[in-house]
Design a protein around this nucleic acid. Sequence first.
DNA 1: TATGAATGAGCGTTCATTCAT
DNA 2: CATGAATGAACGCTCATTCAT
Lengths: 218, 218, 218, 218
Amino acid sequence: MTSTPPPHLTPRKTPRQARATVTLDAIFEATIQVLVSDGPRRLTTTRVAERAGVSVGTMYQYFPHKQALFYALNERYLDALAGKVEGACLGQHGAPIDQMVAALVSTYWQAKTERIEVTHALYRSVAEIDNEPLIDAFAQRVDAATAIMFASASDAAFADLPTVVLTLLNSIFGTVRSVFERDLPFAEADAVMRQLMLMCTAYLQAVRVSDRSAPAAA
Amino acid sequence: MTSTPPPHLTPRKTPRQARATVTLDAIFEATIQVLVSDGPRRLTTTRVAERAGVSVGTMYQYFPHKQALFYALNERYLDALAGKVEGACLGQHGAPIDQMVAALVSTYWQAKTERIEVTHALYRSVAEIDNEPLIDAFAQRVDAATAIMFASASDAAFADLPTVVLTLLNSIFGTVRSVFERDLPFAEADAVMRQLMLMCTAYLQAVRVSDRSAPAAA
Amino acid sequence: MTSTPPPHLTPRKTPRQARATVTLDAIFEATIQVLVSDGPRRLTTTRVAERAGVSVGTMYQYFPHKQALFYALNERYLDALAGKVEGACLGQHGAPIDQMVAALVSTYWQAKTERIEVTHALYRSVAEIDNEPLIDAFAQRVDAATAIMFASASDAAFADLPTVVLTLLNSIFGTVRSVFERDLPFAEADAVMRQLMLMCTAYLQAVRVSDRSAPAAA
Amino acid sequence: MTSTPPPHLTPRKTPRQARATVTLDAIFEATIQVLVSDGPRRLTTTRVAERAGVSVGTMYQYFPHKQALFYALNERYLDALAGKVEGACLGQHGAPIDQMVAALVSTYWQAKTERIEVTHALYRSVAEIDNEPLIDAFAQRVDAATAIMFASASDAAFADLPTVVLTLLNSIFGTVRSVFERDLPFAEADAVMRQLMLMCTAYLQAVRVSDRSAPAAA
DNA sequence: TATGAATGAGCGTTCATTCAT
DNA sequence: CATGAATGAACGCTCATTCAT
């Protein structure tokens, strides 16, 4: 994350000791658990502290206020997610576009699917804070990685790569979220994911500049 | 709406009198206004009542509790939205698929764009209640209408229409939401919408059964 | 009080109904009682509400926050005090200065002595809020009334009346406070008060312009 | 200080080592600074320790609790103040009463005026603890010194010296405080101080026993 | 001995809900 | 019926104090 998040939303102390790291992890995990089991409305400082096995006071030693905790949690989450996507992109360097799309979709879907309830909880709690800076930073990283990947595609070139990437990512991320929130049974969700790959590939083929020369997207 | 929403989430009285309708409307509008101007966290019953020009007590005559109000608001909103989509689908009966896609995307986008802040506010406040039944009902209506429309396409037929429709709608709705939440500048948002049409059309062409006979989706 | 107190320090609602007045009085009285029995540090909203026989919520219907309650209490107190002093001043119009001094001192002393613990409590809690505006308003009223009184003295005139009044009042108010805070036994306190009258009279005679013509104060 | 302060309010250790003295001084100075800059409400142990450059734990090595720190601070302050007044009294031995009064008033005023914000802060924070023992001790010392001084006056004798001194000191201390708290502009404050001298002198002349023989005060 | 992370009671404040008027 | 004052549980947060290191 290269963006500058509002300073009042950052943890108070960098964990220098092992103990602090453990505590911090406990707090984050507790936050997720409370989020999952009680919902964002019931995410209270007391409950988190309790579940984390620390006192409220301790929590406030690490985070200046509740929002900061939440913010940091999202930061962690998005940071990891971005990392995975970046990894996938790097792994597909020079591959054909259908493989790229498949990697992109399945990586993202898998990441979201790993801990389903957590994903659900985080989707549901997005509104609780202003995490625009985080979303922006995430988008930036992922956009860049994806653009670089597609620029290296073995079987296609794109006139307006930024727009293509923007469309693709919004599509993928949006569709995944939509599928998630509708709580589709696995079979259907899986089917949609496969169709999504198809769709993205079809799109890319439609807008690619054949033989690296012809017309543009838009 | 044909689904059965939990009875405790429905308004207490059917508005038989004009007065009641007016009051109800005022309450809904006030809710939206408070939502837009103060955010979901500051949406208090008192504030809504005040803005609506009624007393809290009166509000509780119409809604057994805050969630019911919220639920009803979403119901209204989704009902209207579904209506618009249904209308668009009916209007495209027998048309070619690219026109259908264009109609679908632009109708949905326009509906969301009409009152941007309202859309934002509602997206942001989705988590506040459990509106799964509403979403389900909405999805059912829209799925049905869309399926009927595409079944009538002049230039394509689909082996597994339900999956195609499911994919298409999740794509469109998800992408729109994603674009909305990233708060893209109009130009970019518009470009993505046009690309989205392209994408959907490419997808449909890829999965259509040529001459109304051949292979299936996925 | 003619000064304009910060709007955020005024009670939320003017008591229009008898009930509200009763409640308000109960809150004020409870505040004093808590102040007296528990000290300013233990003056919590919960305790006040409890002692007043109302809920915290009710208290917050009358005062936007704790400070406002405190402020209003001081306002009431100083308003009444200023009224008493003004009354005394009016009553001594045209009298000789020693009677004026006697009236001033004994009125102030009596007012402070009426409910000793209350006076103590209020003196002790002065620092809790910024009541400068209240003090200023109080000083203004009392200064004015005192100046008018002394200007009418039958046996003296003063060249620099404002300074004389300022000195006199600071002396009286300060000495009374000092005596109070040292918690002198009644006999000593009473003796000091009588000496204070003597002192003030001696001062006025020392600075008066004989036959309404001669040299000035300062 | 000859009075017996509650043992739980005294520092834990007598500063036998230079290090301890330095630390203690730092703590006291930090307390004052925090008091001045943040006000008595924001005077937290953490903040004081931080500003003093020591850990909270260390602070608790010197003071069993916050009140003890506060108490000790006031003790220091009042001790120094009493010392100054005593010095002034000694210096005026055998002088005429007007010089004595002038010395008394100006010494006290100067002491209070030396670090205005500190004085303000201390006046404002008096209520935080029960420092009656300190006040008593202070009063005793100052009373004694003043009584001895006036007993040596070259131009007056007093029948009831204790009452005279009590009155005089309450007057002076009270007036100074009153002037301070009203935050009068320097010119006015200075004028009042000069008038105060006048007043005290007039008083003493009024109650003195001429030729060291005649009637008494009160 | 010095440290400062941990504690948790207690604070000020909010707000969904009730019910006497 | 409509009102809105009253309720009080529950929240976010602070800070004097302790104690393992």
